[in-house]
Every structure is written in C-alpha cells, then in structure tokens.
Amino acid sequence: MYIENKSICIVASTLPVGFIAAQMETLNVEKIYVLSEVHELSYQSFRTKNPQIEIVRVPSGLPLQSLYFLFVLLKARISGTHVIFFHECCLPIFDLLLQVIKPRGYYFPQVTMSGFQEIEPEVFPRTRLYRLLGVLGVVDRFRFYRSPAVGDNESEYVMSIRSYPGAITSMDVSFSRNVISRCSSCGSQKTNKVLFIAGKSFVSDASQSTLFRSLIEAAHSRGYVCHIKDHPNPIYRLDLQIDGAVVLDPSVPVELMDKDYHLAVGVSSSALLGFNERAVSLVHMFGDMSPMDKSLCVNHFEEAFPGNKINYIRSLVEFEKLL
C-alpha cells in the first residue's frame, strides 16, 4: 500500500504511534493532529527523525473542536488529502462528520473493543454529548460500551460508530499488528537492562506497586539496570518511585524506544507486543485480579497479535529464571 497524495493523521491516543512510525513514508504523512498537550509531547518524538512532520494540537471543548474538525475534513475533501485515523471510540462528532463530508481515507484500528462491555443506549450516562446525538437523531448510528474499572479509576463509558462511508477503507486490526511486528523487531542484541512498563490495569494500584517493587529488587540484585516507563497519559500512571530503578520520561511512547532490553515486564500494556518472546505479562501473579479480567488481558493480546510469544509468569521464581 502506498498513498500518492499527501495524508493527515488524526490520533486520539498514543496507541497508533508504532504503526505511524513504521508507515510514515508509505502513508505519505504531512501532519499529525493530536487531542491534548500530553499527546503533543508524545508525538513530538517523530520530529527527531522526521522534522518535516507537523504536529498540530486541535482545540479542546466540544463546540470548538467540532468546528475545527469540520474545517480540517472539508479542506481534505477539496484538496484530495487522505484522512488516516485509528480510534475505535471517543471521537463521535469526528465520525459523524466523516459520514457527511466523505473524504478519502483509511481506518487502521489498533485494538478491538473486546475489553469493553456493550450496553444499551438507555444505560449510557446522559452526558452533553449523548444529548446532542439525541437532538441530531443519530443515536442509532453508535454502539455504546462500558469498561471495567482500571486500577483506582472508575469505569469509563464510550461510544463507537457502527460504520464509515465508502470513501473510507477500513482495515482489520491484524493488518496494523502485522505491520508493527515486521518493522519493530527486537533483533538479536540484548543488554543488561530490564524495562518495567507501568500503568493502571484491572487490579489495584497498590498491588501493582508491591509486585513491581519485588521484581525490580530481584532484577537489580542480579546486576540488571531497571527502567520504569509509565503510561503517557497521566490519568493511567502509577507514578512508581522504586530504589534501584531509573524512571524514564513517560511522554515518550515505548514503541519509539530502543528494543534492546533483556526483558520487558508489564501487566496489560499493548506495548508488550513489540518485544515478542522478551515480553513478560504479570496478569497471573495478582490474587486480586478476577479470572474474567485475566482472560480479558490475555484475549486482548491474542486478538491484537495472534500467536504472540508473551511469557505469562505465575511466580517470582519463574521471573528469576528469565533473568
């Protein structure tokens, strides 16, 4: 796949960062539109190798952001610029504008909604956005979901559009994952470093903190340099400070970091998928994580990258054998 015309990327999170990095030339990207200052900091990493890429933060607030997307999509339609996007949920007004304006473009989902519970519209909170969709008479164009509680955070409610217009080519999650797996190989080089990928998951923050501390102590005592990489989004961070570990800049996505780690250790982060057999998931080490949530994590990895080689350990002894 090669896009001859210029394209713009609309991103709602840091999930697509590895895919965009791998497909920068193929997609012919000239601008990346981000939704927040946090995302702007994360995507600025692209400019190190691609200084020609412009990172643009869209205005906040529903009315202003909607008008801004209207302008961006109309301009893309008139100029023939392709619109590339990745979100499975969270941008309903943008999705509605796509149906009306119909610019040419591609949808590259990075994950599925399998970790969320689909709910009836009647159960969805009556937010200002939901009421607006009701006034517009377009509620039936969306599916509605509720996420399990993540760490000490409350459940989230999100909506996902049912379909895109014919001008948008919708790809499967497997396409994105295959691209990333081909272009972000760990290679054969290993160092004496262990990366601990932190972030809220389907277990208490305190449980994660305790387990990460014991694993870091074990690795550090064996001479490994331990790095902690927290989630780019502050609301999902654990803010770990553990003796014997270096805390990396959380705004830099793992997907853009060197992959020369001996191991990459985390719970449910999609970033583990970039480390193949060097990845270690801790989902089976938490007594306070429900069997259903453990299955959700494992299925999330398998759906995103079927046949992945993540190591699911169940004890500190198993972790020490991998060191």
Rank of each mutant, 00 (worst) to 15 (best):
181 S>Q: 10
57 R>E: 11
262 H>G: 02
171 M>N: 10
224 Y>L: 14
321 K>F: 05
239 D>S: 01
54 E>L: 13
105 G>D: 01
310 I>T: 00
180 I>Y: 06
154 E>N: 10
315 S>K: 10
63 P>E: 13
155 S>C: 06
187 G>E: 05
255 E>M: 14
217 E>I: 07
76 A>G: 02
174 S>E: 14
242 I>Q: 00
35 L>Q: 05
106 Y>S: 11
292 M>G: 09
305 F>I: 07
39 H>S: 12
207 S>T: 00
58 V>E: 14
34 V>Y: 05
276 N>K: 11
259 K>A: 15
191 T>I: 14
181 S>N: 14
235 I>G: 03
232 P>Y: 00
126 R>A: 10
316 L>G: 00
282 L>N: 02
269 S>K: 00
92 P>E: 04
89 C>S: 13
33 Y>G: 05
24 M>W: 04
245 A>G: 01
210 T>W: 08
253 P>G: 11
230 D>Y: 03
126 R>Q: 09
298 V>D: 01
33 Y>S: 01
131 R>T: 06
205 D>P: 09
292 M>T: 09
224 Y>V: 10
301 F>Y: 11
291 P>Y: 09
95 D>I: 06
296 L>K: 02
280 V>A: 06
64 L>D: 15
296 L>V: 12
199 G>A: 09
310 I>L: 08
237 R>T: 03
269 S>V: 03
217 E>D: 07
16 P>C: 15
151 G>T: 02
281 S>H: 09
43 Y>W: 14
304 A>K: 05
98 L>F: 04
35 L>E: 03
139 V>K: 06
58 V>D: 13
256 L>H: 07
273 L>Y: 01
284 H>E: 15
107 Y>F: 15
36 S>H: 06
75 K>Y: 15
124 F>N: 08
97 L>R: 12
59 P>M: 08
237 R>E: 12
145 Y>Q: 02
177 R>H: 15
283 V>I: 15
48 T>F: 14
305 F>G: 02
